[in-house]
């Protein structure tokens, strides 16, 4: 299954599923990444991590390790 971690800059993806539990998952959802949300990959930080995305009309940065929990298509 493809996750947000492997996404390429410039892609727009749809969230299929969120894995994991507890504070991290809740935080990701609280920030607006829920099932069916469109996520646009804007850029990657100069050192390769984290990545910057556009979600629900604003900019959100997320570490690759955390992005792995987000299944997309």
């Amino acid at each position: 299954m493809k996750t947000l971690k492997d996404a390429k800059v410039g892609q727009t993806l749809t969230v299929v599923r969120l894995n994991g539990t507890g504070p991290l998952k809740r935080r990701i959802m609280d920030m607006g990444i829920t099932k069916g949300t469109e996520v646009y990959i804007r850029k990657v930080a100069p050192l390769g991590d984290p990545i910057e995305t556009t979600v629900r009309g604003y900019e959100l940065s997320i570490r690759r390790a955390d992005a792995e929990m987000i299944e997309v298509e």
């Binding site: 504070p23 991290l24 935080r27 990701i28 920030m31 984290p50 910057e52 604003y58 900019e59 959100l60 940065s61 997320i62 570490r63 955390d66």
Partner: peptide, 10 residues
């Protein structure tokens, strides 16, 4: 530890 899921405000 807070996860690094951070808003980049305009």
């Amino acid at each position: 530890a807070a996860p690094f899921v951070m808003e980049l405000p305009p």
